[in-house]
Design a protein around this nucleic acid. Sequence first.
DNA 1: TATTCCGATAGTGAC
DNA 2: GTCACTATCGGAATGAG
Lengths: 284, 284
Amino acid sequence: MSTTDLDPEDAITKEEISGTAPAPSENAGVGNSKPQRNAFTELMAPKPKAAAPPKQDSSKPRSFRDRDGLGAYTANPTNYPSNRVIYHNDDFVAINDLYPKSTVHTLLLPRSDRSRLHPVEALEDPQFLASVQAETLKLKKLVAKELQRRYGKFSEADKQREAVLNGEAEWDSPELPNGRDWEAEVLVGIHAHPSMNDLHVHVLSRDMISECMRHRKHFNSFNSPFLVDVADFPLAKHDPRRHPGREGYLDRDLLCWRCGENFGNRFKRLKEHLDIEFEAWKKQ
Amino acid sequence: MSTTDLDPEDAITKEEISGTAPAPSENAGVGNSKPQRNAFTELMAPKPKAAAPPKQDSSKPRSFRDRDGLGAYTANPTNYPSNRVIYHNDDFVAINDLYPKSTVHTLLLPRSDRSRLHPVEALEDPQFLASVQAETLKLKKLVAKELQRRYGKFSEADKQREAVLNGEAEWDSPELPNGRDWEAEVLVGIHAHPSMNDLHVHVLSRDMISECMRHRKHFNSFNSPFLVDVADFPLAKHDPRRHPGREGYLDRDLLCWRCGENFGNRFKRLKEHLDIEFEAWKKQ
DNA sequence: TATTCCGATAGTGAC
DNA sequence: GTCACTATCGGAATGAG
């Protein structure tokens, strides 16, 4: 499976079965291999792991259960198949969310002692913040690429690009036509009050199409100020997002992310509506 | 089936299967036959049925659906089997509640034009009130008798009486021993805000054991001032029970009718507790 | 508070 | 706001030619 095969469980969806999608190269063992080194990974200079003592008593290994489940990925990224761990390096592990709330939903997990802090505190460190921001951008581009791979064939804006890709149109330049700005369709951020104890940056498509999208709070956690962009850190002293409960972000009326229609608390009707918006969105 | 077989659907409960219960005489066709005549039924002198004309325009028979469902019983009591209509006369129909909230749960339905009024207004007529009170007492005694029939064999207070009944003890008097005061175990009243439009007096055992007892409001409607005894009518001008919603009777914490334990809103736990209380109650 | 169906809401427990 | 399970709470329909 290729590095961009972010959600292989979707590999046999209708689109891919139809054969019009470019088949991802079978890249065996990518889950256990080191990621390619590039300008981005080079930025993050590897540091000695032992230099950072775990806050926890090392005689009692962490349990990685329930709210600590994400710790297992940063502790042992090679334990996971490539459809779970997208890539990892000394400082980060990128995974596909086990309970995706959109068709593409990844998490960036910093491998840092600061990951056990609340995100607001963790990202007060300028150097750490910069590294997280940079790696997040990298993952964001990867997710955008995956969106193009999955949905480009439906996209009006990608029409010319797709035609060139499929050898159905002439194109003189060595670069493909730019096509749709898929990065604009990617949400990036950290939950104002995470339920999982290890720092994780959500990087996901904005469609909100998933069987795991089940409650109002799921939806509002990605479609309200509850999702704090990494670019917004460090958070100002009196930023209201420091008190997400007080602000009631998660209990707000359900508003379609695309057309703004208000569904009140009728989650199921929102879901039905999102299915329709999804089809239109792909065709943009 | 006998006249006191108020709930034949219970005919094959554990107790009766065990054979310790006096088997009700197999009275074929009782559903369409008149009940046995006894001192009680004799009290209610039969009057010409035509004397009680249906209030409604007979050209448009009313729906008898939903909130008007009880009207069918007073309009045509003979249309029902004897396990539904317990007895009827010109002025009243007594039925087994279709959705009993206790092991014995009957309704007294006055066959009067006033039955379409709100109970508070309907029972402002002294003569009508007196007749309802008298007939209610009659039904209450019938229900008490049924309780004795069903549960006397478990009752400590009924022990001597049961022994005589079963020929297991000597008893010189022609009258049986009095035994337990089963009338004290019977609730009688009218809901402060009925959902069914036809006047109906609830006459039921206090056990609250029934699969139809399904939520807090069911329970509180029989275990709070929401149940207004017919003896309390006519209601004083400022009686708080004229405004049951304002008083919040139905939304109160769940309190066991027998021991007073507070179950808050935990209805299921109350139900489990009531099962235990039921066993102890029978043995009193 | 008639029932019934569906769905939204709330608390818990997770080793 | 992790999930999954259970239970509680809440609104709307309820028929028929």
